[in-house]
């Protein structure tokens, strides 16, 4: 994902913007990272440079939790504990 995409993104569920961006890996573009909605507390992973921004009912809980675990050292507490729709606290 290119950084400038952030200028047009909004939360697909509550439409709040701007989204908070946390970068885990960046080369020419952001390879891995998190997009966070500070209104509804949803989080969206960026995997292989592609932002995953599906609504709750189309998300894959198992894959999402694996992603959070992979980055739990660097993801913010609020997402790990109470991020929607899934978090590590269950």
């Amino acid at each position: 994902m290119k950084r400038r995409l952030l200028d047009i993104l909004a939360c697909p569920m509550c439409k709040y913007y701007p989204l908070e961006l946390i970068v885990f890996e960046e080369e020419e573009e952001i390879e891995e990272g998190l997009l966070i909605c500070n209104n509804c507390n949803r989080w969206y992973p960026i995997i292989e440079a592609i932002p995953h921004m599906l609504p709750d009912d189309l998300r894959d809980e198992k894959e999402d939790l694996e992603f959070l675990k992979k980055w739990q050292e660097r993801a913010p507490e609020k997402i790990l504990k109470s991020g929607k729709p899934f978090n590590l606290k269950g």
Binding site: M1, Y17, I50, L54, P55
Partner: peptide, 18 residues
């Protein structure tokens, strides 16, 4: 993406845009 399109995994019913 390999074809050079900037892509987002999303649906038309709930678009992640302003």
């Amino acid at each position: 993406k390999r074809r050079g399109v900037e892509v987002i995994n999303a649906v038309g019913e709930a678009m992640p845009f302003r």
